[in-house]
């Protein structure tokens, strides 16, 4: 574990109990300058995790609750007529923030979804011909309910692609659940979190992550993995080049968190499913979910010696 980040993880794990792996993935996502999609049932602590991350990194935080009637202007902002000045003035929406928690993103209509997703990709928004840059860093944590729930508009693949990770939190362990039920953690602790890093530190860490070494040998492992997904009959299509890039980016952040300046095959394996699973669609022939197919696949591909 990288030593400047150790207190960060301590704080986060106090708030989100028993989810150290997911916490680590979330932080890795932030360090790799990617966006995070948390998919789980309501009430699993998605929002808490998002808020905790925002606080601990000292980021400006905005929460957007997506509903079926939310409009793009509610997210981006709009030009509003100022009576005193006698002209239209741009009122920035909640998207102009360093960390945005997009809650239940799949409850919104595709139109509203795409407003956020375009902002995520381009780091800027355009309102009536005027372009506004979004702050830096710009980190989106979106949560979504499992798509089989009523009243959801599933995100199209092209937009899912924009999230670096998709993670599931899952139910907590019984032991942690006991602590939780006693009411000694969770949101109560959220208020005790203090910012441990400032903006420049975060940016320099993000820069350091990009400098992590990826050897030729590792690339051949990644290429083998990508090839296997492309050739597998269990998927409609394989990992795209963007997916491959995301894999490397994520693995670099993971290696950084492990205190190394080089990427190992193990890093790839750790981030493989969060990075890849939401980008792939299991084919009609296959009954199992993308996650279980990928797990199987990882166990089959030999790490080159």
């Amino acid at each position: 574990m990288h030593k400047t980040l150790t207190p960060v993880f301590n704080q986060l794990n106090k708030v989100v109990l028993g989810k150290s792996h997911q916490v680590k993935l979330s932080v890795a996502c932030l360090l790799a300058e990617g966006h995070l999609l948390i998919e789980d049932l309501p009430g699993m602590g998605k929002t808490t995790l998002g808020q905790a991350i925002a606080k601990v990194f000292g980021l400006e935080f905005q929460r957007i609750q997506f509903t079926s009637d939310i409009l793009p202007a509610d997210i981006i902002g709009a030009n509003i007529f100022d009576k005193n000045d006698g002209q239209f003035k741009f009122h920035a929406g909640p998207v102009f923030s360093q960390l945005i928690l997009g809650d239940e993103i799949n409850r919104a209509t595709p139109k509203a979804q795409s407003a956020l997703l375009e902002a995520m990709e381009e780091q800027q928004v355009t309102v009536e011909g005027e372009t506004f840059s979004l702050p830096e860093p710009f980190f989106v944590i979106a949560t979504q309910n499992p798509s089989h729930q009523i009243g959801t508009y599933p995100l199209p693949e092209s937009q899912l692609d924009r999230f670096l990770f998709r993670i599931e939190l899952g139910y907590p362990d019984p032991s942690f659940e006991r602590v939780l039920l006693k009411g000694k953690s969770g949101r109560q602790n959220l208020n005790t979190i203090e910012p441990l890093l400032d903006l420049t530190e975060l940016l320099s860490i993000q820069e350091a992550v990009t400098q992590i070494t990826v050897s030729e040998h590792l690339l051949s492992y990644v290429i083998t993995l990508i090839k296997v997904t492309r050739e597998s009959p269990d998927f409609a299509h394989g990992i795209s080049p963007r997916g491959g890039l995301a894999l490397i980016k994520a693995a670099k952040a993971w290696a950084f968190l492990d205190g190394r300046d080089y990427v190992l095959p193990e890093d790839i394996q750790q981030v493989f499913i969060p990075v890849v699973a939401h980008r792939l669609e299991s084919s009609l022939k296959s009954n199992s979910s993308a996650v279980s197919i990928l797990e199987e696949l990882l166990a089959q591909v030999k790490v080159p010696s």
Binding site: L264, P265, E266, Q269, L298, A299, Q300, V301, K302, V303
Partner: peptide, 9 residues
């Protein structure tokens, strides 16, 4: 040693 184990593993 499972095949997919890297050196660190």
């Amino acid at each position: 040693i499972p095949e997919h184990y890297g050196p660190q593993a």
